[in-house]
Amino acid sequence: MTDQYVNLGEAIKKGDVETGVSESLLLVERGVKPIEIFSECIEPTLAVIGDQFSRLEIFLPEMINSAEVVKAIQNEFKPLMEADQETISKGKIVIATVSGDLHDIGKNIVKAMLEVNGFEVNDLGVDVETKTILKSARDADADIIALSALMIPSLPFVKDVIDFIEANEEARSRFKVMVGGGPVNREWADEAGADGYGDDAIEAVDVAYRLIDAPA
């Protein structure tokens, strides 16, 4: 990363929204293109942050704060670069913990990791009904539906989402489903017909990349 990005990189690491935004605007004033700021500074910085969290050298609050800085910069740049939006966002993901299940820590970590890796994530929260998940995925024009379930009695609701998508041609051509959480494992995910499974938040990011690249 070149010297011009030092301050911005630091602001993202520190979770300093104000400096983050003012530094990136300063860079634009100096003639750097927003898209370059993303690829040359923001993305590599976030990759480092994700890495540090996966080794627990930093914790969730720090990671959330960094993601907040980037979201604010994205908002600031929006009018400047409508055309480039697609390139900045790696893809749109709708994430939820399924019906009856209140466990959200894993989901939140997965969400934060996806965000720092450049995905646009719409978090529906916990205990979300199948209908709501599908509707929100349509409304958000999501590429991926990510589902978390932590208890065995929640597993049928994960399967429901997959079955509902399977049963609808339009939905099948639009959405990929990735799943994870305690009782979910690779074997169960395959059997249920999920497109991807992640053991932890680190794998979740790899799976999301794979699904975005895969043809629908």
Binding site: G100, D101, I152, P153, S154
Partner: peptide, 9 residues
């Protein structure tokens, strides 16, 4: 299979 908030639960 058990399902939360259903007779099965």
């Amino acid at each position: 299979d058990i399902r939360t908030r259903s007779p099965l639960e």
